[in-house]
């Protein structure tokens, strides 16, 4: 077991980091927002944490939440103009947002180190602390599923105008979706900085965007299991077949097309759907007891 851990530690760490980013990506989609802005939030959190950790004496228990906070702020600010945009256009607009963040990181050299980025960041994250943070994010997502917020997000994702006809403010809840996505993205951007020693602008570019999107499409866009499956498969894949690692871009592309065409809900969501379907058949017409309620929502 110990041996297994040491030989696969980098894979596990990579899995945990992409898991966090995947939840940031997923929560936006769950709320019906086609944002692919996670890379931008990660860059905001990543840079803030890297700069604070290398240039100031601010304690870590302040720095790490600050990464999440700036991500949430970014999500809030972004949500205001984007409230005017519909559906798919949000995707490109958030891509433009990522571009803006990267351009700013390149421009303000004094602060960000320009193209070289921030170097010599103290490495304080290890597998266990990353796992703890991933659990925290899973808890938040699980909580959304156990409350009416989860139903509202599901309603927005399925039919915005029906949700509005029931009194749901599209703007307010899309803003919440953006902010949660931003907070998680900023948090994990910061954690990544405290793990990889140095960060540079291009690490948050197009490749980041599509990698995270692939994870969520492959895993699933609505369930807790989705990102776990997606990040897991994407972490193992290059280990299993080395040639795939050289053409990662194409592999991502092929996975996206195949999954969205033939298994549109993704691996994780499809499994959860099947399990849930069996539960419901067994339950029949009994009033939902408290325990059952907890079960039923556990993975929504």
């Amino acid at each position: 077991m110990i041996h297994f851990y040491y030989s696969y530690q980098p894979v596990i760490d990579f899995f945990l980091l992409s898991l966090g980013f995947a939840y940031s990506q997923q929560i936006a989609l769950r709320a019906g927002v086609f944002s692919i802005g996670t890379a931008g939030f990660a860059a905001l959190g990543g840079y803030l944490v890297a700069i604070l950790a290398t240039r100031t004496e601010v304690p870590m228990w302040v720095i790490i939440p600050a990464g999440a906070a700036i991500g949430a702020l970014g999500g809030y600010v972004l949500s205001i103009p984007l409230a005017r945009l519909r559906g798919a256009f949000v995707a490109i607009a958030t891509l433009a947002f990522v571009k803006v963040i990267i351009a700013l990181a390149l421009y303000f050299e004094d602060l960000t180190g320009g193209a070289i980025g921030v170097t010599n960041i103290p490495r304080i994250m290890d597998t266990w602390s990353l796992a703890l943070m991933a659990l925290l994010v899973i808890y938040v997502n699980w909580s959304i599923g156990r409350t009416t917020l989860g139903r509202i997000f599901a309603a927005l994702a399925q039919d915005e105008s029906v949700a509005a006809s029931l009194g749901v403010s599209i703007r307010r809840y899309h803003m919440i979706g953006f902010m949660v996505s931003g907070a998680i993205g900023g948090l994990f951007g910061g954690l990544q900085s405290l793990y990889v020693y140095n960060i540079e602008p291009n690490a948050f570019g197009f490749a980041f965007v599509v990698t995270i999107l692939t994870v969520v499409v492959l895993g699933g866009r609505t369930t807790l299991l989705g990102p776990i499956m997606g990040a897991g498969i994407m972490a193992i894949l290059p280990e299993v077949a080395r040639p795939l690692a050289d053409n990662r871009t194409m592999v991502n592309g092929i996975i996206m097309i195949l999954v969205i065409t033939f298994l549109p809900r993704g691996v994780g969501d499809t499994i959860v759907d099947a399990v849930r379907h069996r539960w419901r058949q067994r339950r029949g017409a009994s009033r939902p007891q408290k325990q059952e309620v907890a079960d039923a929502v556990a993975s929504d």
Partner: peptide
């Protein structure tokens, strides 16, 4: 949303 994903997928293949 599926169209965003699938067209991005083709985009990635051409880029590669």
């Amino acid at each position: 949303f599926p169209a965003i994903v699938s067209s991005l997928g083709v985009d990635l293949i051409l880029i590669n």
